[in-house]
């Protein structure tokens, strides 16, 4: 006992134990099961399943649409957070509450709503379709759905950081002759960038995993509008469990690599912090 290090914050053993148990039960064990199931396939079969042109098309659509949706959210989410933190206006609390809406709404409902808006006799579709703009059941609709479900992430991660920005920093820039625009791009943007990246990563991860809303806004046509999570369900329906897990594993690995890259970027962008 004598060589046990004194720690003014007791409870490390207990909390760490719970943390490991919790993570194992919820995350590690299911993932391990996923990998184990997949490993029952031979390497050859695995490769055949995951490189099937239909699967490749599905990955491309999933990651492409998620990337576009996350980029849209990074831009407009930043704008929204900025407006919510910086300005006082009538109905601000209501707008703020709306941001959480995509968290609460069942995504299937969101999907149904979006498609019913854009179909030929929908509220928006009745004007857009005659102009030749077909959105319902296309890839554009998928992007809209993914943008919707990812909306809160950038806004909610950015809000506290924006609120904590010292006004003096901007005043200091002004006394040195910087215009508002210059101050935004030279001072504020680099400060906010790591946080925007975090929000972007969260929105992206959310979009990659999204299923419920996309099923309803897309025709789920193989090679065209079929996302990878849908393909997994298709394989399950075919009782091809191994193929389903194999695609899931690929999805998981690509997501992991992309998130690791974003994480690295965040570290680089916030090198000026401790």
């Amino acid at each position: 006992m004598a060589d046990k290090k004194f720690n003014p914050l007791p409870g490390f053993g207990l909390t760490m134990g719970y943390t490991l148990f919790y993570l194992s039960a919820l995350v590690l064990i299911p993932i391990a099961a996923l990998f184990l199931k997949t490993f029952q396939l031979s390497w050859h079969d695995f490769w055949r399943v995951v490189t099937h042109p239909q699967a490749i098309a599905a990955y491309k659509l999933t990651f492409g649409a998620s990337l576009i949706a996350a980029l849209l959210n990074a831009f407009f989410g930043t704008l929204l957070a900025w407006v919510l933190v910086r300005y006082e206006f009538w109905g601000k609390r209501f707008v703020d509450a709306l941001v959480d809406f995509p968290f609460a709404l069942p995504t299937a409902v969101a999907g149904l709503t979006i498609s019913s808006l854009f179909v030929a006799n929908g509220w928006l579709g009745r004007y857009l379709v005659p102009m030749g703009i077909q959105i319902a059941y296309t890839r554009v609709a998928i992007i809209i759905a993914l943008t919707f479900v990812g909306l809160p992430f950038v806004v909610r991660t950015l809000q506290p950081v924006l609120a904590n920005l010292e006004g003096e920093i901007e005043e200091a820039a002004a006394t040195l002759g910087a215009s508002r625009l210059r101050t935004f791009f030279s001072i504020l943007a680099p400060t906010l960038f790591p946080t925007v990246l975090t929000g972007f990563a969260l929105a992206f991860a959310r979009a990659v995993g999204e299923y419920g809303s996309v099923v309803f806004v897309s025709t789920n046509m193989p090679y065209k509008t079929q996302i990878a999570p849908y393909l997994i369900v298709v394989r399950l329906d075919e009782f091809d469990y191994h193929a389903a897990t194999a695609i899931a594993v690929v999805l998981l690995i690509i997501s992991f690599l992309i998130l690791a890259l974003i994480n690295y970027l965040e570290g680089w962008a916030s090198r000026f912090h401790n």
């Binding site: 003096e168 005043e171 006394t175 400060t191 912090h273």
Partner: peptide
């Protein structure tokens, strides 16, 4: 304020965190 050509030092310094010392002074 941009055109007054004054130097202002804030109580909490208000340095630009994303810039090193050189860039702060050169801004």
């Amino acid at each position: 304020v941009q055109k007054r050509n004054i130097g202002f030092v804030f109580q909490n310094y208000a340095l630009f965190k994303t810039m090193n010392v050189f860039k702060n002074i050169a801004f």
